[in-house]
């Protein structure tokens, strides 16, 4: 039981990484237009990048949560 609750806590900590970074990183990232990356303004590239790595982080959280079940 304690193993499950510690896994749930760890899952929570991993899963909140994308919202925390994207919400609280906005003041730093949103003013940056240049350099362009892959032709995109940096702040737009940042959002597209998170569309790619967000699921990787959540997959990690999923593996933590379901490990051993």
């Amino acid at each position: 039981m304690s193993s499950r609750s510690s896994r749930e806590r760890l899952t929570f900590l991993v899963a909140v990484i994308p919202p925390v970074v994207m919400i609280f990183g906005a003041p730093l990232v949103m003013p940056i237009v240049e350099p362009f990356v892959f032709g995109l303004p940096f702040n737009l590239f940042w959002h597209v990048m998170w569309l790619i790595i967000g699921p990787v982080i959540l997959t990690l959280a999923y593996l933590v949560r379901t490990r051993g079940e």
């Binding site: 929570f12 737009l44 959002h47």
Partner: peptide
């Protein structure tokens, strides 16, 4: 212009919330 990036952002962040609430 750039304010619409919030929609791309919540396509990531809302699914983190969904991931936690879904089970």
């Amino acid at each position: 212009g750039a304010p619409i990036y919030y929609a791309l952002a919540y396509f990531v962040t809302a699914y983190s919330t969904g991931f936690l609430l879904a089970p």
